[in-house]
Design a protein around this nucleic acid. Structure first.
Lengths: 345, 345
DNA sequence: TTGTAGGCGTTATCAC
DNA sequence: GTGATAACGCCTACAA
C-alpha cells in the first residue's frame, strides 16, 4: 500500500513537514502556533490526498502505541465474541486501537505463537481471557516478562499478580442448586469442559456446585460429574453418557450455554422432554439462550458489559500504573426460563 | 512497554546491530554470512533478553507490513466469527498478521472510523465481508482510493472491481423450494434482514426464492415476504408478523440461521409445532443448527473454509498483482434435517 | 564475516 | 509562526 505521507502533504501545501504535524495534533494544546491560512492549506492538502497518518510511525516516534490487545480462547464461542465486542467498542470509543487474537482450541504452540505475534506488534495494555496459554511454560514466561516490564494487564482469572475481572458464580450457583432442589431434584449432573493443554474450565462453578449441594444436604455422586471438551458436540457426548447411567440424573448443569445446548440435544435424542423429563441449566446467557425451544434457564453475567468493564479497568491502570491491584467481581444472576421444571420421579 | 531492542541484543552479544538483524532474518537466504559462533552468541542474547523484533519498525523499514485486515459486520454473528476464524488461521499459517475489525450493527460513521483506523495501521491486503460500510459515500471513497493504489482486496460481494468470493445460492435455493413444494407447501414465507444504512442482506436469496417459486408455478405473494433487522429478535418479530397473517404460511425461509432461530421461537410462542405445523429453513449452517430442537434444515456453505479460501485468494493477489480478476463461487448445499416436514393443510 | 550509514514516517526539540 | 534536525527500531546496501 502506498499511502501518501506527511511529506507529500507538506509539499502539496507548500510547508515543512513539521508544520503538517502541528496542524494534525498541535491543536489539542491550547497553543496554536499556526496561522489560519496555513492550517487551511494543510487541511486541504490532507483532504485532497486522502492522507491518514501512519500509526506505526507515530507509535515508533512517540512511544505510545495507543493499542490494546485482547486474547480470547475461541472466536466462535458466542460468549467470547460477545466479550470481545464489548472490549472493541469501549476501546474504539476511547480512541484505542484494538488487536484481537484467539488462541483457538488448537494447540499450545499455537497459543504461544499468538502471544509472540502480539508482542511483536507492541501494545500498551493487554486483556487476557485465555487461561489456556498460561498452561505452557513458554507463554507464562512471556507473560511474566511483559508484566515485569510494567505492561498493564487485566486478566479474567486469578492466576497472576495482575488486575483481575471475573464472574462470581458462588451466589448464583447456590441459587441454581436451591432452585433445582426446590423442584425436587436430587440427582443433579454436572458437565464441564477441558480446553487445550488440559486446562480445566469452570472449576469455580464445579466447586460451588459441590459446596451448595452439600449445604442443602444432598450427597455428592462423582459419577454425576462429567468432564468433556469445550464444543457443543463435546457437551452432547458428555450429556449422553450422563443420561445413560442408571439411575440417571433428573437435572443437568452445564458450565456454559454451548454445552447446555449439546445437553438439550442429547436429551432430545434419548426421547426425553425438557423440562418434564430433564431440567437443564447453563451459564453465560448467550443471546440465543432466550430463543431456544425451550428457552434455556441460565446464569447471566452480561458479557458485553463485562468487556467494556475490562477495558475500563485496563484504561485506569494504563493511566495510573501505581494503582493498587484491582479485583473486579461481576455480578451474576440466575435467570429462570423454561428448561427447568419439577423432577420427574 | 519497554521491550528490549536490537541494540540491546547487539550489546549483550558484543556485535553490531546489523549482525543481529542478519542472524534474525538472514538465514532464510542460502547465503549465511555469519559464523556459527557469532550466531550462537546472538541467539543466546535474544533468548536471555526475551527479545522479539518490533513488527512496526520492521514494516516501516522494509515496506512490507505482513499484515492483512478483515472487516466483518458483526463479531457476534456466528456466521462471521466462523469466517473470521478461517481467515485468522490461514493467515497465521502463512505468517501474516491479522487485523480484525467489526463495523458492528451501529452506525455508518462508526464503520468509517473502523475503516480509517485500519488504514492508519497499514496493511498489505484486505478482506471485506461488510457490505455495510460501502453504503456511506465516505467509506466508498476510502476504499476506492486504496484500491486505486493497488492494495489487494477480496470482497464478499460483487460491488467493486475487485476479487470476489461469494456463495452461489441459486441452485441451493431452487432445491429449497422444490423440497418444500414436494412436501406440499404453497404458502412459503421469506424473512430477510436489513443492516446498517439500509443495506439489504440476502437479496440474492430473495430473487432466487422468487424465481424458483415461479419456476414451479407457485404464485408470488408479496405479503409473505418480510423485511426485518439482522438480529435474532428481529427475526422473531418478523416471523411473528408473518405467522399472524391469515392464511398463514406453512413454511418460512430465513436468510440466515439466526433469523431462523428467531422464527422457530416465534412459531413456538404461537403454539405451533415444528415441523408439523410449520416448516423452517435457514442459511449458513452455523454449528449450532445441528443441535437445535428440532435440528434446523439449512443451506450450508462451510464458512470456516470460506475464510481460508478468502485468504488464499488474497494471498495469490498479493503475490501477483497482475492476476486477472477472480470470481470465486462457493458451493452451497441444502441440508435436510428436522425442521421441515409435510405441509399441515 | 562483520560494521557503517542512510532511510522508512512520525514526533519533539530547537532555532530562526 | 515556521522550518531544520535528531531520535524511534529496524532493514539493507555497501564498505571494511
Amino acid at each position: 500500500m502506498n499511502q501518501p505521507t506527511q511529506t507529500d502533504v507538506a509539499q502539496r501545501a507548500g510547508v515543512s513537514r513539521a508544520t503538517v504535524s502541528y496542524v494534525i495534533n498541535g491543536l489539542t494544546d491550547g497553543k496554536i502556533p499556526i496561522s489560519d491560512e496555513t492550517r487551511k492549506r494543510v487541511l486541504d492538502a490532507i483532504e485532497e490526498l486522502g492522507y491518514e497518518p501512519d500509526a506505526r510511525a507515530q507509535a515508533l516516534s512517540s512511544g505510545k502505541t495507543n493499542t490494546i490487545a485482547l486474547i480470547i480462547p475461541d472466536l466462535r464461542n458466542p460468549h467470547f465474541s460477545e466479550f470481545a465486542s464489548g472490549v472493541e467498542e469501549a476501546a474504539r470509543a476511547a480512541d484505542y486501537h484494538f488487536l484481537l487474537s484467539s488462541t483457538t482450541l488448537i494447540s499450545d504452540e499455537y497459543a504461544v505463537d499468538v502471544f509472540k505475534d502480539l508482542v511483536r506488534r507492541r501494545f500498551d495494555g493487554l486483556i487476557l481471557a485465555s487461561h489456556f496459554i498460561l498452561k505452557s511454560k513458554e507463554s507464562r514466561e512471556i507473560l511474566a516478562r511483559i508484566h515485569k516490564r510494567g505492561l498493564p494487564i487485566v486478566e479474567f482469572s486469578d492466576i497472576n499478580n495482575v488486575d483481575t475481572i471475573s464472574a462470581d458464580y458462588t451466589e448464583a450457583t447456590k441459587e441454581v442448586i436451591s432452585h433445582l432442589v426446590s423442584l425436587g431434584h436430587r440427582r443433579i449432573g454436572f458437565v464441564y469442559g477441558v480446553g487445550t493443554g488440559g486446562y480445566e474450565l469452570g472449576l469455580d462453578r464445579l466447586s460451588s456446585y459441590e459446596e451448595s449441594l452439600q449445604a442443602v444436604g444432598v450427597a455428592l455422586d462423582p459419577g454425576l460429574v462429567i468432564k468433556c471438551g469445550p464444543t457443543i458436540e463435546d457437551g452432547y457426548q458428555g450429556a449422553l453418557k450422563l443420561l445413560q447411567r442408571d439411575p440417571r440424573p433428573t437435572a443437568i448443569i452445564a458450565i456454559n450455554d454451548l454445552l447446555a445446548i449439546g445437553t438439550m440435544r442429547a436429551a432430545g435424542d434419548l426421547g426425553m422432554c425438557i423440562p418434564d423429563d430433564l431440567s437443564i441449566i447453563g451459564y453465560d446467557d448467550i443471546p440465543m439462550a432466550n430463543y431456544l425451544l425451550p428457552r434455556l434457564t441460565t446464569v447471566t453475567k452480561d458479557t458485553f458489559t463485562a468487556g467494556q468493564t475490562a477495558f475500563e479497568i485496563l484504561m485506569a491502570r494504563m493511566q495510573n500504573p501505581k494503582l493498587p491491584r484491582q479485583f473486579t467481581k461481576l455480578p451474576t444472576k440466575l435467570i429462570i426460563r423454561e428448561s427447568t421444571g419439577r423432577a420427574p420421579f
